[in-house]
Amino acid sequence: MGTRRCKIMTAIRFENVTKQYANTTQPAVDNISCNVDEGSFVVLLGPSGCGKTTLLKMVNRLYEPTSGTIYLGQQDIRQIDATTLRRQIGYVIQQIGLFPHMTVAQNVGIVPELLNWQRDRIRQRVDELLALVDLPPDVYRDRYPSQMSGGQRQRVGVARALAGDPEVILMDEPFGAVDAITRTGLQDELIALQRKLKKTILFVTHDVEEALRLADKIIILKDGRLIQYDTPFNILSHPANQFVYDLVGADDIIRQLGLVRVDLAMKPLPADFVLNGRPTIARDDNLRRALSLLLNSNAPALTVTEGDQPVGILTLNNIQAYQ
C-alpha cells in the first residue's frame, strides 16, 4: 500500500478487525476492513450494541482487537506505546469526560502537559483553543466544568481533544447528553471547525440525523458487521439493504433533502457565470432549504456561495437528479 501513489492518504485503516468479548458468543466487531481518508469526517452509525463504540475504542487502544490490525497512517498501532498513541489522538466523550476537579484551562491543557510542553506555550495554546470553540478565555479559563452549561462543557471537550494538535480525533457520542437545540448548534460549529482544521474525525452516534448532517462518509454497522460505507447521499439514494433503508428512513424524500448538503448536488459555475441577483444559498445548507427557496423565489437557479464567494449553481433538475 505504501507504494500506491494517490493524493488522498489513508489516515486509519482497519484490516480484518474482530473483537470477541469473553462472555458472548457473537463477536462485538466482526471482521471489519475499511479505510478512513485523511481529513475526512466519518461517522460510525448503528443501533446500540452494533459494535460502533468498540470499533472506535480500538483505534486508541482502549480496547485491543482479538484479531486483525489497525493502522494509523502506515503504522500498526500495536507498535506504538499505548499512552504515546493516545496523546497523538484526540478523544471526545460525553461531558462526564471532563475532569471535575480541574479548571477549564487545566482540562484543555492536559495533553500538552502530558507532552511536557512549557507552561507559557500551554497557556497560549489553551487560550487559542478556547477562542476557537467560542469560549472567551478571559471569562472561562478559570471556571470549573460544574459552572458551565452542557453545551459549553462539550466545547471544552472538543478543545481538549484538539490541544495536542492531533491528526485524528475520535468522538464517542459527544453530543448525546445535550438538548436538541444545543446539539444542532454544536453540530454546526463542528462542521465549521472541521472545514477550518481538516482533521480526520471518527464519530460515533446512533442518531441518524446527526450522522447524515455531519458525515463525509458513514459506516453503517449491525451486529458487529459493516453493512454499508458510503456518502450520506448514496446511502439515502442506494441503501444496501432493507435494514439501512429502514434505519435512515430512505422513503421520506423531503426528509432526505433536509439532510443533504447543497454542495453535494450543485454544479460548478458555468464559464459564462455572472452574478445576476439570483437568490443565494450557502454550500453547507441543505437541499430542502434550497428547494423551498427555489419554489418561493420562482428563480430558475440558485447561486451557491461560500462566505460571499459564488462557488456553484443549483437548479431544480440538479435536486431531482440527486434522487
Partner: peptide, 15 residues
Amino acid sequence: VPSATLEAATGVGMS
C-alpha cells in the same frame, strides 16, 4: 470516581 472519567483519563494518554 465515575468509570467514564477514568476512561477519559486513559483516553487522553495518562499512564
